[in-house]
Amino acid sequence: MIQVKLVSKSYDSSHVIQNISFHVKKGESFGIIGPNGSGKSTLLKLCSGIEKAEGGTIQFANKEIHTYSRKHLAKWVAVLQQEALPPVGFSVREVVEMGRYPYQNWMGTEEKDPEHLIVDILEKLEIKALQNRSLEQLSGGERQRVALGKVMAQQPQILMLDEPTTYLDIGHQLQMMEYIREWQQQIGLTVISVLHDLNLAAMYCDRLLLLHEGRLVKVGTAAEIINQELISQVYGTEPTIISHPQLKVPQILLNSDRVPTTVNE
């Protein structure tokens, strides 16, 4: 589905991404992890075609990504960002409908009325009751769900997530990831996500790519990537790694040098 070969990118002579190659299969959930400044977001910007790579090639379905027009590309790839939507005066429904932009002609209409699709999305994400509310009046969690609705209306083949759960509490984080997983399983969507939270990454990604200072360290399953040696090498901290009792994936517990104080009885 996506083939990335020897891609590099630099800003002002500092190399942010160097010679990275990987591929993502159709229907796969692929995670990109790494410490701050390792180039995760830049790599995602290259893959979504919003910035141009300096060397190497990125292909969707065996076709170089820069040969697609912007509008055509938007039918292929949708991106859900960290700060999803600014508090503007549009209603929930209007924002979800904006996702149809790549399918509209210059008059703003489509061959097939998208009404049914829009209502479906609003119901699925439980934002139908809010549909006439303005974005300014929504909470952070609701706003992020509207952003997901807009991305769903775009009907992409590939969904890219740029730390979409950063500003959410654990309940909403999980809810967001579950909505995406359900969508993925329904239509065989390919998901590439940049995640900060290694535990979420281990839970929701089939394979992970570990980045360090712009270079690829390793690609593999969560069990292969999240181990004591690699994590301490890349993140510079010695965590305790345990297996999730239910899901059997590695989960990280952070350690501290501080000696636990005991309370005298």
Binding site: I50, R70, K71, A78, V79, V88, F90, E94, M98, P102
Partner: peptide
């Protein structure tokens, strides 16, 4: 309208 959501959002939605 798409610009109001931010230039990057607009680009991802297919705006040049």
């Amino acid at each position: 309208n798409l610009f109001a959501l931010g230039e990057r959002q607009a680009a991802h939605l297919g705006v040049n």
